[in-house]
Every structure is written in structure tokens, then in C-alpha cells.
Simulated assay, not measured.
Amino acid sequence: MSPQDFERLVAGVTGQIAARPLDDALDAWLNATWPNGSPTFEALAQACRAGVAQGWLCNREAGGLRYGRIFKALPATHGFSVDVVSMKDIAGPHHTHPNGEIDLIMPLAEGATFDGRPAGWCVYGPGSAHRPTVANGAALVLYLLPQGAIEFTPQV
């Protein structure tokens, strides 16, 4: 797996969702179309695991998180930036999604959850906010951000 192969794989997903609103209907569609165990889900999960092992994904570390933005919002990814984060029993920094966020949850430990959700997709609508939390073990999370928009909450 190379970053270029990974970009093509992600583009196959973003090309089908770029014109859709980020809402509960998209969440349901993603989980019905590419559920945990489906060929697309497994290809993305394997690509993420390979990218981490090869060192081009999650190549930064801070506060107990391994993370990295592999692609800024590009025409090839239909205007989505692509980040992958490795988390284990931790809450990340609070942030807002001005344009929404699409997450692919890939547990590395059986029973690991992201924001209380198991393996699969999670969609946050525009203006939503959260403190991303992985519980019950380790997980990789792929983040798709329209136009790469994210605003971290200042810590006081």
C-alpha cells in the first residue's frame, strides 16, 4: 500500500458522498452500503493498518494520540481532507466541525468503540462538536473533513 494507492481508495468513497449532506441519512447509508466486514470497509481498514505499519499514517504523536493528515482537501478526494488517528482508551481534544465530519471506526481491539459506537461509520453534521473518545481498547479512526475544516477548542 502506498499513499497514492490509499488516495485512490479513499477517492472511491468520497466520490460517492461528496454531494450528500452530512446528516443521519448519510450515516445510515454509509453503514448500509459499506458496513463492517464489507470489501470496501476491509480494504480501507487494511490500508490504514498498512499505512501505520509503514510509517506514513499516524506519523505524529502528542497527548497519547498518534495522528496525521495524509491529504489536505484535494480535488482528487472530492474536497475532503483525510486524517487517520490511532487512539487507545483516551479522549482527544475538543473540536468543532464547521462543515461536518465523517468517521470510519476501525477497532484494533475487540469491543473498542469511538464515541460509544462500534466498528462502522459515524457522521457528524455541520456545526457539531465533540471530544473524540475511544474506549474499551485501541482503534484507528479515519476522518474525512469537507474542505479540511476543523476548529479546535482553546484549552484553558
Rank of each mutant, 00 (worst) to 15 (best):
M1Q: 12
Q4A: 15
E7L: 09
E7Q: 03
L9P: 10
V10Q: 04
V13K: 09
T14L: 06
Q16E: 15
Q16A: 13
Q16V: 09
Q16D: 13
A19V: 09
L22G: 04
A28D: 00
W29T: 08
W29C: 04
L30N: 07
A32H: 08
W34Q: 09
P35K: 12
G37N: 14
T40M: 15
E42G: 08
A43E: 14
Q46T: 15
A47E: 01
A50V: 13
V52L: 11
C58V: 05
R60I: 07
G64Q: 07
G64A: 12
R66T: 06
I70G: 00
F71M: 11
F71G: 01
L74R: 13
L74A: 14
A76P: 01
H78A: 01
F80L: 08
S81I: 06
V82T: 11
V82C: 04
V85P: 05
S86Q: 12
K88R: 14
G92A: 14
G92D: 05
P93G: 15
H97Q: 03
P98C: 12
P98Y: 10
N99Q: 11
D103Q: 06
D103K: 11
L104C: 07
L104Q: 04
L108N: 04
L108R: 07
E110H: 15
A112I: 08
D115T: 11
G116K: 05
G116Q: 01
P118I: 05
C122Y: 10
C122P: 03
P126A: 15
G127F: 02
A129V: 12
A129G: 11
H130Y: 08
V134Y: 02
A138T: 10
L140W: 00
Y143C: 05
Q147I: 07
G148P: 00
G148R: 02
A149Q: 06
F152K: 02
